[in-house]
Design a protein around this nucleic acid. Structure first.
Lengths: 248, 248
DNA sequence: AGCTCCTATTTGTATAATGATTTATATTTT
DNA sequence: AAAATATAAATCATTATACAAATAGGAGCT
C-alpha cells in the first residue's frame, strides 16, 4: 500500500493535505489539549506507524514539525516525549489554535490573550497615529466599511480583525504585525457564528472602531491609544459574559 | 557510507547535533538573512543533498522544520520556495535569532523589538504589582541580587533578563511569559560582551531596576508601569547610540 | 491564439537495512 | 555487599531505493 490515497476522501480543494499534516494535527491537539502530560512518551515511531497507518517517514516528519514548535523532544532509546509546557511555542499559530480550541482552559487562554492585546494594541494605535500613510489609512477605512456592509457575522468578524491588523501594519514594526496577525488568526477560528448582535449594539460597536480610526487619522496618538483601550476593555467584558462570541 | 559520523567532528557536548539541525541553521540564515528572495526556489531536494552531503531524508526533515516556521512552502513539480515575508513566524525563537543576527537590518529589528517591549512590559509590571506572590517576588529579588554581584558583563545581562522574565511570569499570563522569554532568548545572543559599563553607570542601572521592583512589591501598579517605561526608554536610548551593547 | 493531451520533473510516501546512543541488565572486581 | 565495568537490547538517526501523485511546460491540434 505504497503512496496510496486511502482513508477518508479529502475535500480536494486544490492541493490535498499531506499525510504528515493529519498526524501533526492529531498529535498537536492531544499534546496541547492536555491528554499527554509533560514528560510522557508519545510511543515509539513504530507504534505511531501502526496507529496512523502510515510509514515511518511520515511519522518522523510530523515529529520534526512538532519538535520545531517546541512540543516534543526525541532521543535515542528514551523515545519521543512531550516537553515541559514552558518550552512550548505558544506564539506559534498552530499551537495557539490548539490551545484556544482545547476543551479545557480555552476560556482562560482567551482572556489571557485579551489581556495581552490590551497592552500592546493601544500602544500600536499611538504609533500608527504618528506614522500612518494615506495607503495604510485606506486599509483601515476599507475594513471599517466592510464591517458596516457585512451581511454575515462571519464577514463582520473578518473585517473587524482586518481593521486591527491594518493598525498594526501601520506602525511599520514587523513584530507588532506578527503578533497581531497571529492573534487574529487564532481568534478567527474561535469566534463561532453565534449570538447575532442586534443592529443597535452593532452600530455602537462600529462607532467605537471609527473613534479609533479618526484619532489615528488626525494623528492624535494619545486619543488613539485611549479609544483602543476602551474598545478592548469592552470587548473583553463581552467575552467574560458570553464565552465564544464575536468581536475584537 | 551509511549512518557514518563523517565530516567535522562535533565538540561532543552531551548529545551530538543532528544532521538536519545543521541544514536548518544554514538554510534559515540564508532565508531570513535575505540571500534568498521571497518566491525564490531553494533548489531541488537532490541538489540540496549534494550541497550538504546528506541523504534526502535529512534534507526533507530540515525543510519540514523550516516550513513549520513559515519560511518555506513545498509543492510537487514546482519545488520548495521561500514564502512571502508576511508568512514568516517572526515570533519563533530561531527565526527571531536569525533576524537579529542578520548583517542587514538587525539594528532595525532590535529597535523594533524594544518598541514592542515598551508597550507590553509596563503593562505586565502593572499586572505583576497586583498579582505578585512571595514566591514570584523572591525570583525578582534574586535576579536583582545577581545583577549587583555579577562579575562579568555576560552574567549581568543574564540576571537582567531574568529580572524581566520574573515580572512577566508574575502576571500569571502564559502569553506574556512566552513573549518575554522569546525576546530574552533573542537578545541574549545579541548582546556582545562589550563596552563595560563604569561602576557609576552600573549603579544607576541597577537602581532603575530596583525602582520597578519596589513598586511591584508595594502593589503600586501605576508606579510599576511608570518605572518600567522609564527603564526601557533609557535602554533604547543606549541601543540607539551604541548598537550591540548591554542592558534591557 | 487557445485548447487538449502528453511527458518529464519534483515532491510525497513506503520499506528495509545499518549506525549511533542510551538505558537497563548482568558481570566482575574490590 | 557495593561499585565499577562490560554486555545487551531498545530506539532514534541516517542512508538507500523504489514507486506514486501532482503539476508545470511543451507538443500538437483546432
Amino acid at each position: 500500500m505504497a503512496g496510496m490515497n486511502s482513508g477518508a476522501d479529502e475535500t480536494s480543494l486544490g492541493t490535498r493535505e499531506r499525510f504528515h499534516d493529519a498526524v501533526v494535527q492529531a498529535l498537536g491537539e492531544r499534546i496541547v489539549g492536555g491528554s499527554l502530560a509533560a514528560g510522557a512518551s508519545i510511543g515509539t515511531e513504530q507504534e505511531l506507524c501502526d496507529q496512523f497507518g502510515t510509514s515511518r517517514t511520515v511519522i518522523r516528519e510530523a515529529i520534526k514539525i512538532l519538535s520545531a514548535k517546541g512540543l516534543l523532544d526525541s532521543r535515542p532509546r528514551s523515545g519521543t516525549r512531550v516537553t515541559d509546557h514552558s518550552e512550548w511555542h505558544l506564539l506559534d499559530p498552530q499551537v495557539l489554535a490548539w490551545r484556544l480550541g482545547a476543551i479545557d482552559g480555552s476560556e482562560r487562554a482567551r482572556l489571557d490573550l485579551y489581556e495581552l492585546r490590551q497592552s500592546f494594541e493601544p500602544a500600536a494605535a499611538e504609533l500608527a497615529a504618528a506614522r500612518a500613510t494615506p495607503q495604510t489609512l485606506q486599509k483601515m477605512k476599507h475594513a471599517l466599511l466592510g464591517m458596516t456592509l457585512a451581511s454575515s457575522a462571519d464577514e463582520k468578524i473578518e473585517h473587524d480583525l482586518a481593521f486591527h491588523t491594518a493598525i498594526l501594519a501601520a506602525t511599520g514594526n514587523a513584530f507588532y504585525l506578527a503578533l497581531g496577525s497571529l492573534i487574529s488568526a487564532g481568534l478567527k477560528h474561535v469566534f463561532k457564528v453565534s449570538l447575532e448582535q442586534t443592529a443597535k449594539e452593532d452600530e455602537r460597536w462600529i462607532r467605537r472602531h471609527q473613534n479609533v480610526y479618526e484619532a489615528i487619522a488626525e494623528g492624535n496618538g494619545q486619543a488613539a491609544a485611549e479609544q483602543m483601550k476602551n474598545l478592548l476593555r469592552e470587548a473583553q467584558e463581552v467575552q467574560k459574559l458570553e464565552p465564544p462570541k464575536s468581536g475584537s
